[in-house]
Amino acid sequence: MSLLKVDKLTVQFGGIKALTAIDFEMEEKEILAIIGPNGAGKTTLFNCVSGVYHPTSGEILFAGESLLGLSPDRIAQRGIGRTFQNIRLFNNMSVLDNLMLGRHMKFQRNILQAFLRIRKEELLHREKVEEIIDFLDLAAYRQARVIDCPYGVQKRVELGRAIVMEPKLLLLDEPVAGLTVEEKNRVAYLVTEMRGRFGFGILLIEHDLRIVSRLADRMVVLNFGQKLAEGNPAEVQRNPEVIRAYVGEG
């Protein structure tokens, strides 16, 4: 059974069709990239999968179960984590607290423990968070307020916040946008490492085709809310439709 199956997904905002009958499937531990020009509907697709938008019609199956009509927190509990294109961190919290929030669902929550300062759970999850802090090399920023951190670090914190959720499927919305070449390579390495080490399936939006074609097992190309092509990176890049969408008429 496939990890994620999107079936005839359509999203309409008034008269605008943001997505029209999108179909694709992804397997476990697969890295699937979604590419396309600006306004193609990539982020809308992510918002549908993570429950921020509700699609007009179509079906999204995660591990065989429908995600339609679920609120984002329920979807997160099913095992889908995501990052955002324009960073959405909790700016006034420390890096550590941001990552601890990623463990929120895994906490055994008890209001009495909160009031009486019983912090067994906290220590348990701190171990896991520290593991990810090492993995992402964030130790120097652990206690820093997120808003004071440089952009590259914020990107990594957001990545870390999604990783500590230990999802089965990770949605990464432009994880390397705005980074230096060095940082891009590092994130690219982290993405492959994440699949190997934690066994996530990763759905990736990215504009940097050089990075994407290296990372992705398969690609889906969107343009104006429609699926243009699907296949492995080499195939997709030779597809004349894709070339037309990206470069224009030749």
Binding site: S71, P72, D73, A76, N91, H104, R109, F115
Partner: peptide, 28 residues
């Protein structure tokens, strides 16, 4: 105690960025 617990963290998360909080599994 409350604000330093998971609950206080969730409260601040809702203040700072409710959509991100929800996506992390905080029931708004």
């Amino acid at each position: 105690n409350l604000i330093s617990s998971y609950m206080g963290r969730a409260f601040v998360a809702i203040r700072d960025n409710d959509i991100a909080a929800e996506v992390l599994g905080v029931n708004l």
